[in-house]
Measured scan of single mutants.
Amino acid sequence: MDLSALRVEEVQNVINAMQKILECPICLELIKEPVSTKCDHIFCKFCMLKLLNQKKGPSQCPLCKNDITKRSLQESTRFSQLVEELLKIICAFQLDTGLE
């Protein structure tokens, strides 16, 4: 393996790690329209609304089981920016390397 191939692999590993961190624990995809709970867990807005609409009253956070309500959800613009920038990095990496 030459040096450039090694560096490509390192970049790919970093991108994969970042994708894992920014993954919704419910749908296991890159978070879309991130919302945070009072317990500071981040999920896709759609995933949380789907969870909350399944029953009346408070639901439980899928990660820590604390009570959550629609009102307690906060849009997470910082995470939204992180996801947007990661998508740009992924696109640039794919253009530069031809890898997916």
Rank of each mutant, 00 (worst) to 15 (best):
Q19K: 04
M48I: 10
T69I: 08
F93V: 04
I26F: 05
C24W: 00
I21M: 05
S36F: 11
K70R: 15
I26A: 09
V35L: 08
V11G: 03
R71W: 13
K88T: 08
Q12E: 07
K45R: 08
V11P: 02
C91S: 09
S76C: 03
M18P: 00
K50R: 09
L6F: 09
I21S: 13
I89M: 15
S36Y: 05
A92T: 05
L30F: 06
C39Y: 02
Q81P: 02
E23G: 14
E33G: 10
E100Q: 09
L95H: 15
L6V: 10
E85V: 07
F43P: 01
N13Y: 07
S4Y: 13
L30P: 08
K56Q: 05
F79C: 04
E84V: 02
V14F: 07
L28R: 15
H41N: 02
K32P: 02
V83P: 02
L49Q: 15
Q74P: 14
T77A: 06
C39F: 01
C44F: 01
S4P: 11
S36C: 09
E9V: 04
I15V: 11
K56N: 05
D40Y: 04
K20R: 11
P58S: 07
G98D: 15
L52V: 07
N66S: 05
A5S: 12
Q54E: 07
T97R: 09
C24S: 00
E100G: 15
E10P: 04
C61P: 01
V83G: 10
C47P: 01
M18L: 06
N66I: 12
I90P: 14
E75V: 03
N53H: 15
L82I: 06
C44W: 02
K38T: 13
V14P: 00
K88Q: 05
V8F: 06
L63I: 15
A5V: 10
F79L: 01
Q12H: 14
Q74L: 06
K65M: 12
L63P: 03
L87S: 09
E84G: 15
S76G: 05
A17T: 06
I90S: 15
L95V: 04
L22S: 02
C27W: 01
N53T: 07
T77S: 09
C91R: 15
V8P: 12
M48R: 01
M48P: 03
D67E: 14
E75G: 08
L73V: 10
D96A: 01
Q81E: 05
L22F: 08
L49P: 07
M48T: 07
E85D: 14
F93Y: 06
L49R: 07
C47Y: 01
L51F: 02
T97P: 01
P25A: 07
G98A: 03
M18T: 01
F46P: 05
E29P: 00
K55E: 15
Q54R: 15
S59L: 13
V14I: 08
I89F: 14
L51R: 05
V83A: 08
R7L: 09
S36T: 13
I26M: 05
L99M: 11
F93S: 02
A5D: 13
C27Y: 00
K45E: 09
R78T: 14
I68P: 02
C64R: 00
I89L: 12
L52P: 07
P34L: 02
L3I: 15
T37S: 07
L28V: 07
A92D: 03
R7P: 14
K70T: 15
R71K: 14
K38P: 07
D96H: 03
L99S: 05
E85G: 04
S80R: 05
R71S: 15
K65Q: 09
E29K: 12
N66K: 06
I90M: 06
N13T: 06
P62R: 11
K56P: 14
K55R: 14
